[in-house]
């Protein structure tokens, strides 16, 4: 182990850390927003959209994230028509491709968690809300959705950690994320452990922060 290599290249690891953190954070936010209509349309059996959401979450949870990212990055780039389209400005960029893949994937998992929470809401709660004269939309907005979200917190903290670990796939499409930084150090100096050990500790540090944050969120908001 050559620790000086790690300290001499701290900027490389900082870049990697930054890329991983913003990719995962943004993917979780976009995925979380997409998850709401996906979960609602399934939980309330909205005509067409409910089925569509079901198939969406089945397809994205049924295939590995690596395959999804490869299809978006290498697959779409093979078609002349895609390369000549307006979308190419975005699809050309590996960061966009990773963000797209991660967001769509995270949306599928988060929607499953939220759907489960909505379906399992106590019947009496919803009926009381209707009895108070609320419309269906009001019940969803004021009662069902907020309570379902608060009951999803425990399960969702796992999804956040899975997304972080899944994000190493970014390094296969040339992004210098945390793993990419470790691999670059390894290949630049022909070492094996230095890069990987460093990123392993950094991933553990991120997970520690996520766990602590969720502990606080659970204390304040979680419902069982």
């Amino acid at each position: 182990m050559d620790f000086s290599l790690i300290f001499d290249n701290w900027e490389l690891f900082l870049t990697g850390l930054g890329n991983t953190v913003w990719l995962v954070s943004l993917a979780l936010i976009i995925g979380g927003i997409l998850a709401v209509p996906l979960a609602l349309s399934q939980a309330y059996n909205v005509p067409y959209f409910g089925k569509l959401s079901l198939w969406y979450s089945y397809a994205l949870r049924g295939t590995p994230l690596l395959v999804q990212v490869y299809i978006i990055y290498y697959g779409l780039g093979q078609f002349e028509s895609v390369r000549n389209s307006v979308f190419w400005v975005l699809l050309k960029d590996p960061y966009f491709c990773a963000l797209l893949g991660f967001s769509l994937n995270s949306a599928a998992y988060a929607s499953e968690i939220l759907r489960g929470a909505i379906v399992n809401l106590p019947k009496g709660l919803i009926e009381t809300a209707y009895a108070c004269g609320m419309t269906r939309w009001k019940v969803i907005r004021r009662i069902a959705l907020p309570i379902a979200c608060r009951r999803s917190i425990f399960a969702y903290s796992n999804e956040v950690i899975f997304m972080l670990h899944g994000s190493v796939i970014a390094s296969t499409i040339t992004i210098v994320d945390l793993l990419g930084a470790g691999r670059r150090l390894n290949s630049q100096y022909y070492v094996t452990f230095e890069g990987f050990i460093t990123v392993a500790f950094l991933y553990m540090a991120i997970v520690a922060v996520i766990s602590l944050a969720f502990r606080q969120i659970e204390k304040r908001y979680a419902l069982t």
């Binding site: 290498y74 780039g77 093979q78 390369r83 050309k92 590996p94 040339t174």
Partner: peptide, 10 residues
């Protein structure tokens, strides 16, 4: 994969 991305223009 380098060749794929070179033809794709990335």
């Amino acid at each position: 994969e380098v060749w794929l991305d070179l033809t794709a223009g990335r």
